[in-house]
């Protein structure tokens, strides 16, 4: 089916604040597309514009061939949404919530199947207010799936959850992916995008700063690997590898390694010098480092 979402030069301002400043991207049918960025980057603004919840300031947006500002009932039947800070009626059970969604959206799915998909079958008759954070998110995903949608928006589905719940939800998302659904996932957890997404767009201050598969992003932004050598007190490597070694802190040296030959050469020299070494490690940059460098590392909460 090709491009299921098309966004061209999308802008959104709240008064004087430009939350989204002219972004363009597309999402292909059947892929997991992740909008990755720190808090306040403009992810929710973007995703809610795509969902038809917010109005844009300018730009062209097409979702399932429709302009989300003029959505119809049929649009809601084709799209599933887990909003940020998902919430539901306190005294409603998981089963009742699903029954309502299924009925209201004229779906033919069964609450039990959906609860099974999100691994929540044992909480079928538990009030929403009594579910844990992770269980609430799972119910939110089940509600988003209740109309058997072609396209699912998940806005920070694992934000604020403990690592175990996060992993469990990621497992659910992997299952969705294998069902062939198109998923639009926003997250500020890099590891999540890296694990789940086919393509990632990194957004910061309302602009897309990079885009590609996780591997491409690493490759493109990759600096060389680093060999880090820590020597014992009182000795120095400066004389051994003057051109390569850079003393990062006292007794800790960093050397960029571009190839295996580089590595062997350095190790050889160290070995010949007989300088007492405490530790040697090879540091490979991953998407996390790329991401941190790109977004300026001003954000650190998880």
């Amino acid at each position: 089916m090709g491009e299921i979402i098309k966004v061209n030069n999308l802008k959104k301002s709240y008064g004087k604040l430009s939350a989204v400043r002219g972004i363009s991207f597309h999402v292909n049918s059947g892929e997991v597309f992740s909008l990755l960025g720190p808090n306040g980057a403009g992810k929710t603004t973007t995703v809610e514009i795509l969902e038809g919840v917010r109005k844009r300031t300018s730009g062209v947006v097409s979702v399932l061939g429709q302009d989300p500002e003029r959505i119809t009932e049929s649009f809601r039947k084709r799209v599933g949404i887990l909003p940020q800070d998902f919430n539901f009626l306190e005294r409603c059970t998981a089963n009742e919530a699903l029954e309502f969604y299924i009925g209201s959206l004229d779906s033919s799915l069964k609450p039990d199947e959906l609860l099974k998909t999100v691994e929540l079958s044992d909480k079928k008759n538990v009030y929403f207010s009594r579910l844990s954070g992770g269980q609430k998110q799972k119910l939110g995903i089940a509600l988003a799936l209740s109309n058997d949608p072609e396209l699912i928006f998940l806005d920070e589905p694992t934000a604020g959850l403990d690592p175990l719940s996060r992993r469990s939800i990621q497992e659910v998302m992997r299952n969705l992916r294998s069902l062939g659904k198109t998923i639009f996932l926003t997250t500020h957890y890099l590891e999540e995008a890296e694990k789940l997404a086919d393509r990632v767009a990194i957004i910061n201050f309302g602009m897309i700063v990079d885009e590609g598969t996780p591997e491409e992003l690493v490759q493109k932004n990759k600096t060389s690997d680093m060999l880090v050598v820590t020597v014992q007190d009182g000795v120095s490597l400066s004389g051994v590898l003057p051109s390569l070694a850079r003393e990062k802190s006292k007794g800790v040296y960093e050397m960029p390694i571009k190839s295996n030959d580089d590595l062997f050469l350095v190790l050889d020299s160290i070995s010949k010098s007989r300088i007492p070494v405490n530790n040697i490690s090879l540091v490979r940059e991953n998407l996390e480092d790329v991401f941190m460098r790109i977004v300026g590392a001003e954000e650190n909460e998880s």
Binding site: E73, K77, P83, D85, N87, F88, Y101, L143
Partner: peptide, 13 residues
């Protein structure tokens, strides 16, 4: 506050 109306609108209500 809890954005229940938004959530209900996702079910077309």
């Amino acid at each position: 506050k809890d954005r229940i109306f938004r959530q209900l609108s996702f079910a077309n209500l």
